[in-house]
């Protein structure tokens, strides 16, 4: 029955980016939620501004005359469609991709995304006040999770599905590194006295909750766990869905399937990148990584993920757009708009 149908390069690119943008929405909602939990009395502005640093958005943030201020950060990420890393911009980009993909994706996927987009575009400044912010974050998470569930249950699993999953996992791994990096920007410095130690563990608990990994972590963590165990969990656990190692493992499988099942030979360079990523994450004990500087390490992982996305783009997406200049791909954190 099954007839092998070719996949338009443009569709593959659209699926990859639709998944990425939606994963970004969910994770940004998680980050906003956890930031609110970190908000220390008297230090709200700094806590919120950490979000900007985690996303490496400082330049763009200040360009429009913003100052370090909690409300302005919330506005920047939740309301400002002109900010390319904001939730409305990501949702818009996801929907535009979905619109291009309507011939391919299920009607149910399109309809949910269409309605979700419309509802979230209606978020107003009032919705960011008090407990409503947490409510909005929940709606955003649930919207993406609904999308994920509908996709799982209705999206045809030929080639396109593999590109969709690749986009999602690359974004997810990237977002987990940013969540981990929060320690560098917000958390109190590691010190010996008991009270500070408890405070720090509480904050790491919030990081785990933001990643929906708190309970799973408690199950596998040693009784007297330390921050190092949390980092190891988010970085290297092979059962936790948002751990970087698990994402990388799945990317490898997906690329291998594209090669063996669909005969796509362009996967070689991408697979080499995945190999390097895996070596970086699992090649030495987490204790060493932390001792050498976690922030620096996470930066490196983020760069590797960008290079991986670029290899996939070069191999499978670019061909349909011969006029586009070869871009400086180290910066390709968002989809090129040339068409």
């Amino acid at each position: 029955m099954t007839r092998e149908t070719p996949l338009l390069a443009r569709y593959a690119e659209g699926l990859f980016w639709m998944a990425r943008y939606l994963e970004r929405v969910e994770n940004l909602a998680r980050l906003v939620d956890v930031t609110q939990n970190f908000e220390a009395p008297g230090r709200e502005a700094e806590s919120w501004f950490a979000l900007v640093r985690i996303n490496a958005d400082e330049e763009n943030y200040f360009k429009q005359g913003r100052t370090i201020d909690a409300e302005q950060v919330k506005h920047f990420y939740l309301l400002d469609a002109a900010n390319p890393t904001s939730i409305p911009a990501s949702l818009d980009a996801a929907r535009t991709n979905a619109r291009k993909l309507r011939p391919l994706i299920s009607t149910e996927m399109w309809m949910q995304l269409n309605v979700f987009h419309r509802d979230m575009m209606a978020i107003a400044p009032d919705d960011l006040q008090g407990d409503r912010l947490s409510h909005i974050c929940r709606l955003l998470k649930e919207g993406v999770q609904t999308h994920t569930g509908i996709t799982e249950g209705t999206f045809f699993r030929d080639q396109g599905w593999f590109f969709y999953q690749l986009g999602r996992l690359i974004e997810r791994a990237d977002q987990t590194t940013r969540l981990l990096d929060i320690r560098y920007h917000i958390l109190v410095p590691a010190v010996v006295d008991e009270e500070r130690r408890v405070t720090e563990l509480t904050q790491w608990g919030s990081v785990l909750r933001a990643a929906a990994g708190y309970h799973a972590f408690r199950r596998v963590a040693p009784p007297g766990f330390t921050p190092e165990d949390v980092v190891a969990f988010l970085l290297t656990d092979t059962a936790f869905p948002r751990s970087v190692a698990l994402c990388v493992e799945q990317m490898e499988w997906l690329l291998g399937q594209l090669r063996s099942r669909y005969g796509l030979r362009g996967t070689v360079a991408a697979l080499e990148r995945v190999e390097e990523l895996r070596a970086a994450i699992l090649g030495r004990p987490v204790g060493r990584i932390i001792a050498d500087g976690l922030h620096h390490f996470l930066d490196g992982v983020q760069r590797d993920l960008i290079l991986l996305a670029a290899e996939i783009g070069t191999a499978f997406f670019r061909d349909w757009r011969p006029l586009a200049e070869a871009q400086s791909q180290a910066q390709s954190q968002s989809q090129s708009q040339a068409a």
Partner: peptide, 23 residues
Amino acid sequence: VPLVEGADLMVEDDRVWMRTTGG
């Protein structure tokens, strides 16, 4: 069947091709 835009198609030697992930 695929919905294509102009940029998905190309002509070489008077034949029309569409650009796919596999070439």
